[in-house]
Design a protein around this nucleic acid. Structure first.
Length: 482
RNA sequence: GGCGCAUUCGUCUAGGGGUUUAGGACACCUCCCUCUCAAGGAGGAGAUCGCGGGUUCGAAUCCCGCAUGCGCCA
């Protein structure tokens, strides 16, 4: 089996595009078939520089390796449609000669005018077929005017186009609702319809898994396959992924590119797992699945029919699950780059990996993304803490009691060993001695040592910070209270 | 405007004629654990299965209409 992911480089790929790629990839890997990447760069006006790299980067990040396509080549290349122009032109010519297509000389202005008229009369827009039956002479006249024609498909005027969709079942369209669509533009570039059909055939694609938005063009493709004498591939139209407003994903939805999630500290394995569950499910409860489990369980039969809304909340939760599954060394590996370029600019770099190794366990179950982890950890790296003095008394202590408690803590800490359990052994009795609830005392020390009311467990945190820094920070806290 | 597709908790979904007082997950709430925050555990609330007709002894599940949404056609 051979499947392909055929993106147009018209922008940064969003999660919907990549989910399509993922399903194709899962299908290929499940059946031990081939996963092909083909760049459909025939729309020169909408082409965006850097888009191809963004697409490839997205795939690479998620580990969706391709067997044929850009960079790796293959037996059916080239895999950029812009390098296959002659093929399409040749096919278009063949279609004209065979009577399945014809040359159209209508100007853009005329078509525009026609369309306006149709809309005004509330008729479905579509080419009025003026050039469908031009005589030799008429054509010669137009040609003599120097007009460069487009090639249009000679769509059957009646009958039906039927096909079996692997997800939707039988889909039927009346031919009369289809107009004579353009195959080859006047600049010699093919339209999506032509290039797509020709390449899927030439590249021996067996299954086309693509987004639902293409369902309406499928009858055109079927007609083309038929006219060309090609056997069509099997089709499976995937439910769309929508934004929170239920509209097709687009740039105005903001956070939709997978690159954005990568840069925000999401793990690729979490993204893959999450995306796989958008429109596909294994059963009524399994949610966390490894790449291997996804591959072995994936099947088109279990793809749903209804569009799904992309939920960042659930993705974040799942990412947290994956972060917690990492062993410390892996977590450190993921964290390092984020810490290196993370927020506090005052922190001196490079950052010590050994130090991070001690911090990571304290962060692990508190972060849903690596970026969150960095935010959580700032006080481990900052030289100077910055917080409002009132924070120290947040738990309702009086200033005097606060001063007294911090001073007592200082004294005891000077003598104590600085591992977590020793600290606990010293500090817990001290709270009782001071007549403070543990929450009050530890809360006070937490703010003093971290500048926060919420942080990882106090003793572990202090142990990592070390005696010197803790004493210095407590001292500073005392200043603040005075 | 035409055509197509879809419609189960706020969201992702299971479920495809009786096993369903419709199951799970996220989010939300409560409690437990607890030095805070998390994580974890136990509960809770949340869906007359879009609406209306049919078929059937019985329908979320099958059929037909309608509505709504989305998509394509420019």
């Amino acid at each position: 089996m051979r499947v392909r992911f055929a993106p147009s480089p018209t922008g940064i790929p969003h999660v919907g595009n990549i989910r399509t790629a993922l399903f194709n990839w899962l299908f290929a890997r499940h059946h031990r078939g081939s996963f092909i990447v083909r760049i459909e760069d025939t729309d020169i006006v909408r082409r965006v520089k850097g888009a191809v790299e963004a697409i490839l980067d997205s795939l690479r990040w998620l580990g969706l390796d391709w067997d044929e396509g850009p960079e790796v080549g293959g037996d059916y290349g080239p895999y950029f449609q812009s390098q296959r122009l002659e093929i399409y032109q040749e096919v278009a010519q063949r279609l004209v000669q065979g009577g399945h297509a014809y040359l159209c000389y209508c100007s853009a202005e005329r078509l525009e005018e026609m369309r306006r008229e149709q809309v005004k009369r509330k008729q479905p827009p579509g080419y009025d077929r003026r050039c469908r039956n031009l005589s030799e002479k008429e054509r010669a006249d137009l040609e003599a005017q120097g007009i460069i024609p487009v090639v249009r498909f000679r769509t059957p005027l009646e009958g039906q186009v039927k096909f079996q969709d692997l997800i939707r079942g039988e889909v039927v369209f009346d031919s009369e609702t289809l107009d004579d669509f353009v195959l080859l533009k006047s600049d010699g570039y093919p339209t999506y319809h032509l290039a797509n059909v020709v390449d899927d055939h030439l590249m021996k694609v067996s299954h086309v898994l693509r987004a639902d938005e293409w369902l309406s063009s499928t009858p055109r493709h079927m007609l083309l396959y038929h006219a060309l004498g090609y056997g069509p591939p099997k089709f499976a139209h995937l439910p769309m992924i929508l934004g929170s407003d239920r509209a097709k994903l687009s740039k105005r939805h903001g956070a939709t590119s997978v690159i954005w999630y990568r840069d925000r500290g999401y793990l690729p394995q979490a993204m893959v797992n999450f995306l796989a569950l958008l429109g596909w499910s294994l059963d009524d409860k399994t949610e966390i699945m490894s790449r291997e489990e996804l591959i072995s369980n994936f099947s088109i039969e279990r793809i749903g029919k209804t569009a799904a809304i992309f939920s960042q909340e659930k993705l974040a939760w799942m990412n947290g699950v994956y972060i917690r599954q990492l062993d410390i060394e892996e977590l450190v590996e993921w964290l390092m780059p984020f810490l290196e370029r993370g927020p506090p600019q005052r922190v001196k770099r490079p950052i010590s990996r050994d130090y991070v190794r001690r911090i990571a366990p304290l962060l692990q179950e508190r972060m849903r993304t690596l970026e969150e982890g960095v935010e959580l950890a700032d006080f481990f790296f900052l030289e100077e803490l910055d917080y409002a003095p009132d924070l120290l008394l947040e738990r309702g202590l009086s200033r005097e009691r606060g001063v007294q408690a911090l001073s007592a803590a200082m004294e005891h800490l000077k003598a104590s060993s600085f591992d977590a359990s020793s600290l606990e052994g010293v500090l817990r009795p001290l709270a009782a001695e001071l007549g403070l609830k543990t929450g009050e005392f530890f809360g006070l020390l937490r703010v003093a040592t971290t500048g926060r009311t919420a942080a990882p467990p106090l003793f572990e945190t202090m142990a990592v910070l070390g005696r010197e820094r803790c004493l210095k920070r407590i001292e500073e806290a005392l200043e603040r209270l005075k």
